[in-house]
Design a protein around this nucleic acid. Structure first.
Lengths: 328, 328
DNA sequence: TTGAAAGCGGTACCAT
DNA sequence: ATGGTACCGCTTTCAA
């Protein structure tokens, strides 16, 4: 239980070689005679020797770790993003610290501390104040995931075209005229962009923007928004993401009402649930895993001192299912 | 961007003192004259000096970090557990690595590697094979979260009494006679215990165990189980956790059926959604945050070489809401 | 109060 | 093919 691991020097002594040789054998580099290699291997296996990560990292001047900073970590959205991150980090042997700032009392200070333990960080838009990002970015490799109003060195994001298309679709094709935007743009760059696209789509048809109902981005928030949405006499609820949309849908169905009959509901992200529920959720598919993977790839490049394009925009795509009235 | 941080020696030189003094000032220990302290503080602030975590950890022979290993990371269950973990780790300045083994190709080997970067690990039951746990526990402080059939040094769990009570409640009070257990005991010690309690509650009333429908533990799995549950002609679905239950409920409502009218549904965990949906989900409340917090506290004790009780059992509680038919 | 120096556990350069 | 050795960045005796 107590961690009484062996050090290189001990293994070296036991195998009757130098620490340099042990290192060479363990990492499989340099040239070592078969005989010596065998001796060392034996010692390593006998004592279950694994080099201390600290010594290794200190000598390499590299932590072999990076941090991903999210506002929260609950839900399929972040899970998928993390999936993408790990898909490139794991094969490259770098470990990932997942940080959910909503848990931290003093997130900013906390992050400066996290920065001491990693080679770089990928930060989700809307998680930390401008000043912190700048302070961080000044000293460490930083990549932003999603839009952020702040001057960030490198950012990876998805476009908003499909979302605008979605709103136009509801307005033009389904003839809806009383849409409510469910989500709070404040503090979320993602939602700010969506709200703007929502308004733009209305303006394009000479319509007034529709109302905005400020809620959080989790399923529970969608459930809690139901009463207000229903009371507002809207014909469609354009939710900021799928989780809110699914929560809202659940609440609406639970009241014995029908979707899209009594209320059209749409989301954004196309999480797994969205294609499974009935009615299927009309939404905007975003390549979340790819978003995480790309951010990680760029971050790693940045860490390695490579030149990195400042902005990468990934495509999103409108997915029409039953909840908007397209089929049932 | 490139990480050109200063080292103690540089700060020491700039302040005209020794590295020892810089260290003393930064950490606020030992005695330093006010004048010297001021000089050093100035240098530290001017260059934004923060000691390298690696040097610090290497000298202290302590990573100041621990790992929490879960099967996955998605959903409110893990989010709440993590919340609990952080609630004790953060104040004590230890950072937390959250590992989701479902993402890792070769989880076992991966974990041995993670172990090199932390002082100890909290492992959720049912995530890694026996051999790995034993290998890990032999060398490092390990605490298991939730039941696990393997000989683990320290385990924190919740009891199954409320769950058994729940099943009895459905059987005895609501007179249900065709219950299906939704969840897969295989590979999940938690579900194994619940299945046993499910069977025991039936036996107690001289009834046959009811059927078992093997599914995963996520909301999507609940949705996907709907057809089979509905086709089976059951009067109640006892789900392995709330997420499955909520998914199932959503699918059932989406088909225009009623809960509990057409089907009684229950869960386990009492996640936030469960009290918000209509009908409210009857479930077993488990102190998830407390579970995570306790596991972390014990792990930290273990790391500090303290004696630790081998098993801690936290209470669970039956929460009757509308989905079982108790009110509507 | 302060500094010199010996580690902590590795890696890698430079000789041999 | 090996070994000696000088770091990596920080903490901490031990003296002064």
């Amino acid at each position: 239980m107590t961690d009484d691991r062996m050090s290189v020097r001990e293994i070296a002594k036991l195998a009757g070689v130098s620490t340099a040789t042990v290192s060479r054998v363990y990492r499989g580099v340099g040239s070592v005679s078969a005989a010596t290699r065998a001796k060392v291997q034996a010692a390593i296996e006998q004592y279950g020797y694994r080099p201390s990560h600290l010594g290794e990292a200190l000598a390499n001047r590299r932590h072999g770790a990076l941090a991903v900073v999210f506002p929260g970590l609950s839900g399929p959205y972040f899970a998928e993003l993390i999936n993408g991150v790990e898909s490139v980090a794991v094969p490259r042997q770098v470990s990932v610290h997942v940080i959910g700032t909503h848990l931290r009392r003093e997130a900013p200070d906390e992050l400066l501390d996290v920065a001491r333990r990693v080679d770089g960080m990928a930060i989700h838009g809307g998680t930390v104040p401008k000043t912190v990002i700048m302070e961080l970015a000044a000293r460490h490799p930083v990549v932003m995931i999603g839009p952020d109003p702040h001057p960030a060195p490198v950012v990876v994001r998805t476009d908003q075209q499909a979302f605008r298309l979605l709103v136009s679709h509801l307005l033009a094709d389904h003839g809806l005229r009383k849409l409510v935007f469910v989500g709070n743009p404040e503090g979320s760059p993602d939602l700010t962009e969506r709200w703007e696209a929502f308004a733009a789509a209305h303006a394009e048809l000479g319509l007034r923007p529709g109302k905005q109902l400020r809620t959080g981005l989790e399923q529970t928030h969608g459930v809690q928004a139901a009463d207000e949405v229903l009371a507002g006499g809207f014909d469609g609820a354009v939710c900021g993401n799928d989780e809110t949309a699914l929560g809202l849908m659940m609440a609406v169905l639970g009241r014995g009402l029908r979707v899209p009959g009594d209320l059209v509901i749409t989301g954004v992200d196309d999480v797994p649930m969205s294609s499974l529920v009935s009615p299927g959720l009309t939404t905007v598919a975003r390549p979340l895993a790819e978003l995480g993977a790309t951010a990680t790839r760029l971050l790693l490049d940045l860490i390695n001192g490579a030149d990195v394009v400042p902005e990468t925009v990934l495509p999103s795509r409108l997915v029409r299912r039953a909840s908007c009235g397209c089929r049932d």
